[in-house]
Design a protein around this nucleic acid. Sequence first.
DNA 1: AAAAAATACTTGCTCCTGTCAAGTAATTTA
DNA 2: TAAATTACTTGACAGGAGCAAGTATTTTTT
Lengths: 142, 142
Amino acid sequence: MGNEVINTIRDFNRFYTAILGVVNNHILESEYSLTEARIIYELSCSGALTAREIKEKLEVDEGYMSRIVARFVKNGLLRKKQLINDKRAYTLELTAKGKKMADIIDQQSNVQVANLIQHLSKTEQQKLAHLIAQVKALLTRK
Amino acid sequence: MGNEVINTIRDFNRFYTAILGVVNNHILESEYSLTEARIIYELSCSGALTAREIKEKLEVDEGYMSRIVARFVKNGLLRKKQLINDKRAYTLELTAKGKKMADIIDQQSNVQVANLIQHLSKTEQQKLAHLIAQVKALLTRK
DNA sequence: AAAAAATACTTGCTCCTGTCAAGTAATTTA
DNA sequence: TAAATTACTTGACAGGAGCAAGTATTTTTT
């Protein structure tokens, strides 16, 4: 009972696991783990967030999160500001240095993706973008 | 210079990283790591292979590979047969138990993917399959 | 044919990521 | 105001994975 749709998707998943591996690992070489990069990314997009918000959005373990934040603060990438109305919690904000780092990671990501599609013509690239947008739309709509 | 194509792909990558995380983790709960599952999968598709062949195809570290194979043999999932013409190397084959395990993982993978698309109509599912097949084709053709 | 280089795999060491559980301080609920 | 919950911290630790050195065998070089 080889369901063709499922087989196609699973084949794609294997294929795309490899692609994401390459892309992410190359970024990873920039001294940060994928999770760390995601946290930096999240902060650079959304501005200030609390640890809890990030942890929930990215589904990172609380303890692990705490350590990463501590390290980032120590390395001067991040600033913690205690909330006025809740002394347990802090908003996290990228420092100037943190923002610079976010930019670097961002650019590296761009380069990685650019490499991925560099063999395609502009038209094909746009077709690709259109295709994956549709894929995401289909998979998102619950 | 926000290249729209690149942004779309990066957005998709984040999205699909999460999806693969869910799918793979659920399979992972079946006591094997992703790499282990991939090795089992590879053997169940291709029949007998040498460690070197698998390691090259899946890009797994040699030492890590060696340990996984040893464990599989110990657990009775795998059989090593020394090559007649090269006493350094072995072909690896799934035992009956190993094949059963492969089937289980296979089914779990199917279930995971089925969950993913369960909210779509048959027509939409086929559309999805068609879309990702095109994506893969575009990204493969180097 | 002997020495050197390469191959296939193993083993020891180690790092890092990530998890779980317990702990502290602050806040909310009963 | 006691109990429960929340936000975060800290300790302990397992598992995945990489690197380098080691062994046995095979191939290449001289």
